[in-house]
Design a binder for these strands. Structure first.
Lengths: 222, 222, 222, 222
DNA sequence: TATGAATGAGTGTTCATTCAT
DNA sequence: GATGAATGAACACTCATTCAT
């Protein structure tokens, strides 16, 4: 009614508003937790009205789901999988781990939110797994490892699938568990990364006589 | 008068009620999430009045903290660390992983609750890490690995600390991430465990010449 | 340009849309109650935009008022009042009641809505009564009854106005209260209608003092 | 924290609070309509906290149901039915109508609320009818009328059940429709009551010859 | 003109917490 | 000490309405 009535009416751009809400939600939830993040706070952060969370996402839960669905990004893995093979398995592991750690860290807020919720909500967990478990990524990784086997660099007796799984596990450990949960410093994470890669290389390298010879000596200590 | 008071459950009840509340809280929170778990539901599950959560734990948050503190259990790691060395590194890894996976699964509810919260609450995360990162466990594990090195079974050039960290990482991956988050089946988890152990053994085994020379000295430490 | 505008539905649509909105409102309100009926649901049912409720009716309340005003339909009562007199008062009552019950049932949704609201909203009730209480209908009915008196068929000592009121009361009872509120079956309603008509006939045809003296003659008519 | 912190903590009397809430609800809903009556306003009027509406009545709807259930009062009809017979049928009708009108007017707020809602809510209507349709009252009334028949004062050929229904209909018309909906003045209501009673008496009195004689003259006026 | 994006005031409801008993 | 009645602040969500396009 008075002069100061100019309440910015926000751009009338449905898509932009939806994205502003999703970005705001990630920020606020990462800070306050899912239930701690009020729709009011999210709307304020997005610079729009609370009601739009209901209209566009069918409520707060829908907003979380939309964030989860956005996690379904096929592009960055493809990027890595398309690169030429490395000169050694250790180097391959190093680059794969480094790539993963970086990608995870870029999306760490979203991942924290989504995993935190998945741990306590069965339905959400199921949906999360449908999106998170990337069989294409795993099989892409297996293909690469298979090429090392073919090149005589990796032990043909090993289960390539398990090796791929181990690499994925280590990347999640370094990129998420250490960095986001245990708060390991970047320096230490990098050192671990280097040495995990080294060890992984040794673990699946074509057997030098060592592995065998040692097992021949097979006497248990003590 | 004084006689009649004997009828009422007294003093010792306090401790029993506290524990009933904590157990109820774990159950209810695991089911509904932390904020989804109402004090009413917890009190009902514990068979007492809501007000006691206030009195005994200084509120709901205090109850969660009490649960976290209970995680600080020094006993089961000690159990494993006290066992005799294995006949091979792969076997050592196998037993360590199996032990961890079992222990984690026994406490999976509490761990899920606590990690879910730690991911989104900085203060809680700090407290969690003070309790969760068990330097004693890690150094115990390093000691065991060192004895394999001393026995010529492990590569003395490798960083024992990193190897221990890798083993811990793999155990968390298998015991928690796969079992609780990714819902990997027990069968597949066991298969992964076997092969991770195998690969870990190869990763840190002594290389060719070294292995031999040390293994010649082959007397078990201790 | 001028040709193209013909493609767009124009001018006459305004009235059609208004009526679509009113019809939709009756349907939706009858189903969900007045406050339960959202403008969105009404607009959807009418196949147009919510904003038109604002533009055309000046808001939701205005839409209700428009519905109420439509109740002001002079035609059907006239229809009945224009018919020739019946051969008996019971028959007159029967036909009048049947006519009313039918008319009420045709408009039962609108009536339910409007009465439900009138019961709890003084202003609305006043407006409702201005429209609902049809003095013309009542006096038309009185005229008819007067003609039965004139014909010697009805007791001239009775208050014709009261008799008309009684007939109107009974028609409302049968047509609305029984059918819409008490959910009396159509069969039972019809049986009541027959006998109410019969009793009404006896009530106003008997000469005053007769009650007792005639009872001495004790033969039942019919 | 300051001096003025003394927020009356209300008597700790569950039953009293429940009744205060129900009374407040009747008042507020009668004034504002069901949906217009906010739980906040009801709680304020009752002098307690909103939360108690949820706790005690399971929400606003439950509060309305509780009000409806209170309508289930067997006592006042019994009062009337226990009285001695009157000297005439007209007098019987007069007293019955007067009694009903008075009882309805005493509870008019509750009845308005409950009927207003029943008109637009099928489930509520069903529940309302289970409580409102008092077969015991109707059969009590029939018994009384039967005694007039036995005394030779009422026509034995008439359907006593229908006569009772008519009386109940007229009482509802006078007591509720006229008084609460049409806002007929008390004076006019009383005049109608007197004459309705008179007419009812004539309607069911033992038959007179008039009926016959008038029907004999059977030519329709006009 | 008609639309639909946007809003803000206000809803019923929840819940950890307090406190008289 | 233990209870449960009571609370108030805060919640997600609704909806009639406004207004730029």
């Amino acid at each position: 009614m008075s002069v100061a009535t100019v309440n910015k009416p926000r751009a009338r751009d449905r898509q932009a508003t939806k994205e502003a809400l999703m970005a705001a939600a990630v920020t606020v939830i990462a800070e306050c937790g899912y239930e701690g993040a009020t729709t009011r706070a999210i709307a304020d952060a997005a610079g729009c009205s609370e009601a739009l969370i209901q209209r566009y996402f069918n409520g707060k839960e829908g907003l979380l789901l939309a964030i989860l669905d956005k996690e379904d990004d096929r592009s960055d893995a493809a990027l890595f999988l398309g690169r030429p093979l490395c000169s050694s398995l250790a180097q391959e592991a190093r680059e794969m781990l480094a790539h993963s750690v970086e990608k995870i860290s870029e999306r760490s807020d979203r991942i924290r939110i989504v995993i935190s919720r998945a741990l306590l909500d069965e339905a959400f967990k199921a949906r999360f797994n449908r999106i998170w478990i990337r069989e294409d990524v795993k099989s892409g990784l297996e293909s690469r490892l298979a090429r090392y086997v073919y090149a005589g660099m990796a032990d043909p007796d090993l289960d390539i699938g398990v090796a791929a799984e181990m690499l994925l596990s280590l990347s999640f450990e370094l990129g998420f568990i250490h960095r986001e949960l245990l708060q390991t410093s970047p320096d230490r994470t990098n050192r671990l990364l280097e040495q995990f890669a080294e060890m992984f290389g040794r673990a699946i390298s074509a057997p030098l006589s060592t592995g065998r010879s040692v097992s021949e000596s097979g006497d248990a200590p003590r």
